[in-house]
Nucleic acid binder design. Structure first.
Lengths: 310, 310
DNA sequence: ACGCTCCATACGCTTACTGATATCAGGTCA
DNA sequence: TGACCTGATATCAGTAAGCGTATGGAGCGT
């Protein structure tokens, strides 16, 4: 690609003149006087090395060379304008692509609302949503295969990544309706020591799993896991059939099953944190927009609930 | 199409930097120092309104906006370079299209050589060759449906058209080998008065037809046309079978048939002129090139045969 | 801590593009 | 022939882009 010194204004003048075939009218359309237009065309012709217009008496005409250049000039101008507009749209976050990883346990709680909010605000953005456990999310953020992660129990410190807590959920006990404790409003964790547990496989979310078993250990027992399921809905279904009890983030209440009761846990200090994660120095403005969408205060509401975490 | 002030040099710098992802290397490839390159990119980013590169430590990267702009910039640059090259080619007459009309009687004489010469010199040019009588050629030149005409007996004066005589051909008598005059080297026109004539229909070339009959009239007789044929080859074939004699431009000798003899005519001043015709103020350089190709002196031969006509 | 790489910034200079006004030249038409 | 429209030319000035050299500052490795 050799050096081509060529102001686009000249191409623009050329295209307009090719359309008008009249120097005066073209100059008026360009908002300049006629002599400058003559100069523009002349300069362009000098660069091409041949006449682009024939100024014979009786009217201005395109020469064959001009006819040849016209489509290239036109497509360059429009293509460039479009490309510029597209780049601006992407740059301002009105368009583009955002790849989001999310923990399975959030599919029913924070994720739907977040997506709805974001899609409303940025309809032009293509969202790539993929379910993945916390650790793979961290890895995916590092190798740039996702842009934002929605995960539980963020690691305290991670190089080049930022985290922000979105939600701090208490735990609830998941009990079959027939369970003796289901009549109570609050359940002490230790009271579940003898019940068989239904949990997610540890691999599906090691952080949350370890936290749950850690809570049990703190309450003085080791949970006896009789059954595992890969989704919370299945867990609830299994609990409903009386296969056992479970311990889950409060967001799970969204799953409404008749034979299942959700009860508050003591000690109530046990909480699981949901966080968004992203790369430091992220250049994609969509990430910033998503962070705004995920924040507890919607942008369009003036009030400040002062619940923002950092 | 709004005003977009955007030097192509910046786009070029952008594309090169996007390929190199290294300011120093890109600047070297562009043949400038590094600071100017930084300025170029910065100016372009200012115009776009967003960063196109991420200059994080560890390397330069394209931002999503830059990624969006890159293909548009690339295609604009290459498209423009191609368009410019094509326009130059057309402008210099190395490419393009040339529409040529030719009289039927030239199909075997000047036309083949002319086309061969021109094709050799300008292989990139597309030639549109169409057979048409003289008068339609004049009309076609006026309404711009052909660019060059090859015709016989050009009108003495014609508005906005130029003519140049290419060839001044004597006439020859076309005789069957068995004809009593075939043994002579030269034939007096009047001697053909009693022979039936084979001619082309007048409509196929009124100028030449009228000249032939005019010659006969000048020699004191009116040719008795017993047969007409639309091509000179057919005329010769008919002559060969003894159906009659004919009068034709000397170029017809190219048609070699055993039973046909071509003999010089007296008076030898009778000649038919072949001319090229083109529009005054023609902007297509191919026309000029064709005129050069049609001229008696080939450009690459230093010798001058001084036969050029005007 | 030092030096190295890499990019950004500051400064000064030159170029040339861009625009306007005024004027000229060629053609057409009344 | 003179009014008029066409586009070209001449001249001038303002602006901005382009370059180079010199320098600054951040990050990284030894």
């Amino acid at each position: 690609m050799e050096r081509l010194e060529l102001p686009l204004s000249q191409l623009h003048a050329f295209v307009v003149l090719a359309e008008e075939l009249h120097f005066g009218h073209a100059a008026a359309r360009l908002g300049i006087a006629q002599p400058p237009l003559s100069q523009q065309i002349r300069r362009l012709e000098d660069k091409v090395g041949h006449a682009l217009f024939s100024r014979a008496s009786g009217g201005v005409t395109l020469t064959p060379a001009g006819h040849e250049l016209l489509p290239a000039a036109r497509s360059a101008l429009t293509g460039l304008a479009d490309g510029l507009a597209a780049a601006r749209a992407v740059g301002s976050g009105q368009a583009g692509r955002l790849r989001i990883g999310f923990a399975a346990s959030l599919a029913l709680t924070v994720l739907p609302g977040l997506l709805r909010t974001f899609r409303q605000r940025f309809p032009g953005v293509h969202l790539d949503i993929r379910e993945m456990p916390t650790a793979p999310q961290i890895a995916a953020l590092h190798d740039r295969s996702i842009d934002v992660g929605l995960l539980r129990e963020p690691p305290a410190t991670e190089e080049e990544l930022c985290f922000r807590t979105v939600l701090s959920e208490p735990f609830v006990a998941v009990l079959p309706a027939a369970h003796p404790l289901a009549g109570r409003r609050t359940v002490h964790l230790a009271e579940l020591a003898d019940s068989p547990f239904v949990l997610l496989p540890r691999a599906a979310g090691p952080g949350l799993h370890d936290q749950i078993t850690g809570l049990c250990t703190a309450a003085g027992f080791t949970p006896r896991t009789t059954q595992r399921a890969v989704e919370w809905q299945t867990v609830c279904a299994l609990v409903e059939t009386g296969l056992g009890v479970s311990l889950a983030p409060a967001g799970i209440r969204r799953i409404r099953l008749k034979g299942v009761a959700f009860r508050r846990i003591e000690p109530s200090t046990a909480r699981t944190r949901v966080a968004v994660a992203w790369r430091e120095n992220e250049q994609n403005p969509l990430v910033t927009h998503l962070l705004a969408a995920v924040s507890p205060e919607p942008v369009d509401r003036p009030q400040r609930s002062s619940r923002s975490g950092r």
